[in-house]
Design a protein around this nucleic acid. Structure first.
Length: 491
RNA sequence: CGGGGCGUAGCGUAGCCCGGUUAUCGCGCCACAUUUGGGAUGUGGAGGUCGCAAGUUCGAAUCUUGCCGCCCCGACCA
């Protein structure tokens, strides 16, 4: 990669970090690689969580909770799984501290060594499948559709706010089924929920697809993902849904008796999305003034800023706003009245732009006579004067429009950044100069994918579902190919 | 773990190359006043082991050595 690209990446990284810090989503923490999610960021996460949780429940899933610690031996029961995660596990070896007899504070008590080390879960397949063994005997126990909201730890070498932190919050679903087809259907049902959530709630267009073998989840038969495109032209895997076949059932000996009284291993899926989606949101929509949040997820959808001279005017405005607030709340709109006297209006305008609040209403003394307020929308920064009558309804329509607009904007950007190419030279050039997804033929081998990654840093993001079948030649090896796949540099 | 950059008040920084009074400036903070339609203004005030340690020197933010930490890039990865 050239210096310029490195520089561009660096600038983009700093822009990204800046927005997160200034918008008050998160902070760096005392623990390297970990992150403090601040109340505003967490409120955003809660909104995401609530919507996903609702959809999971609508599709028959239940929440449960499994331990944070996994006995080391569990991890090694599924060969591919342990290989995938072994390099990034935090390990608990002792259970006690004591005062250093040689002085100098507190030390790990060498006598308190655990007989078997505990792994801090990087994902919960193993502990959950160990449990499922005791829950499943008959086809009557199936399907088992469980989800858990939890934190996991993956000791990555390099971290990045929200996108890759040592500890992160996520949801992980783990299901067991009587047939292979049922498990595949489940995997795809969830993929659809993720895609629908990304597009309708996050206003972020995604491509559903199948992962290549190289990118497959450790222990899965097939991995599906939703892939989004960020504003710097890099792809972001925003959610994964895995068809596990009978891999974990075999590893943990989970068998059931079917209707014909035959014993078989159960079929499984697992799937998850994480706080990484907040990172996706930041990179998909923000501009130089800060965050732009989709109205459906914004913790604050509307902020009202009073403009006044003296307490008398303030009181008049307060009274009027009180009426507005009731109207907004009646429509289920999340509204905040910022009448904090410590900051001036201009300061507040800038602050809520940073925070990505979709709609801002400024109301001043002179508006009281004219019955008109100024509304500003965050996505276009456009301002308009509207009547106070039916303001809540006006804003409701506007919120909907903003939601659509930022989706469309992101979609136009995404679509303009999917480029087809059939020559290697152009492939390299596109990656360096334009970025985005590159639709190209691939011979289907892991060797070619590895080689392409080595040469360009681009990986196969996915083989899109319902992909058009067309004859072609592999961009790198020239060998025959039946379909195009999507390459990109990725987070 | 490799490459690059950096560490001076809560935040951002100047000074360092070329050692020398009381360490610069902006934001923020406190008090009062005037202000309030796009990050207010004035006056006064508080705030510092110059990342840590050792060394050189009459004298170190500045030079030397070691260590620690952070950010960016790479390997790893959701």
């Amino acid at each position: 990669m050239s210096k310029e690209i490195t520089k561009r990446e660096q600038d983009y990284s700093q822009w990204y970090n800046d927005i997160i810090l200034k918008a008050g989503l998160a902070d760096y923490s005392a623990v390297r690689g970990c992150m403090v999610i601040k109340p505003y960021g967490f409120a955003l996460w809660e909104n995401m969580r609530d919507q996903l949780d609702k959809r999971f429940k609508e599709t028959g899933h239940q929440n449960a909770y499994f331990p944070l610690f996994i006995p080391k031996s569990f991890l090694s029961k599924e060969a591919a799984h342990v290989e995938g995660f072994a390099k990034e596990c935090a390990v608990v070896t002792h259970y006690r501290l004591k005062n250093d007899p040689n002085g100098g504070g507190i030390i790990v008590d060498p006598d308190a060594k655990l007989e078997e080390e505990l792994i801090v879960r990087p994902t919960s397949e193993t502990i959950i499948w160990n449990t499922y063994k005791t829950w499943i005997q008959s086809y009557r126990d199936l399907p088992l559709l469980i989800n858990q909201w939890a934190n996991v730890v993956r000791w990555e070498m390099r971290t990045r706010l929200f996108l890759r932190t040592t500890e992160f919050l996520w949801q992980e679903g783990h299901t067991a089924h009587a047939t292979s087809q049922e498990a595949i259907d489940e995997t795809l049902t969830i993929l659809d929920i993720y895609a629908e959530f990304a597009e309708e709630w996050m206003a972020m267009p995604v491509i559903k697809g199948i992962k290549s073998v190289n990118e497959r989840f450790a222990g899965a038969v097939e991995t599906y993902s939703i892939e989004a495109l960020m504003q710097d032209g890099k792809a972001l895997q925003s959610g994964t849904s895995h068809y596990l076949g009978q891999n974990f059932a075999r590893a943990f000996d989970v068998q059931f008796t079917d209707k014909e009284n035959k014993l078989d291993y159960v079929w499984a899926s697992s799937w998850g999305v994480s706080t990484r989606m907040i990172g996706a949101l930041v990179m998909a929509h923000s501009d130089d003034s800060g965050l732009i949040l989709p109205p459906k997820l914004a913790p604050i959808q509307v902020v009202i800023v009073p403009i006044y001279k003296g307490q008398e005017q303030k009181q008049m405005i307060d009274e009027k706003v009180k009426l507005f607030m009731d109207d907004f709340k009646a429509l289920g709109i999340r509204v905040k009245y910022d009448d904090d006297d410590n900051n001036r209006p201009g300061w507040k305008f800038a602050e809520y732009e940073l925070k990505g609040v979709p709609v801002r209403i400024a109301i001043g003394a002179r508006d009281m006579q004219s019955n008109i307020v100024e509304i500003a929308r965050r996505d276009t920064k456009e301002k308009m004067s509207v009547s106070m009558d039916g303001i809540a309804n006006t804003v409701q329509v506007l919120l909907k429009d903003i939601q659509e607009n930022i989706y469309n904007r992101a979609k136009v950007f995404r679509d303009n950044n999917i480029t087809k190419t059939d020559t290697w030279k152009e492939f390299e050039k596109l990656l360096d100069e334009k970025g985005g997804f590159i639709s190209a033929h691939w011979d289907g081998t892991a060797e070619t994918e590895d080689k392409i990654k080595e040469l360009t840093k681009a990986t196969i993001r996915c083989i899109p579902l319902n992909n058009l079948q067309e004859e072609g030649a592999c961009i790198y090896s020239g060998k025959p190919s039946k379909e195009r796949v999507l390459f990109a540099r990725a987070y």
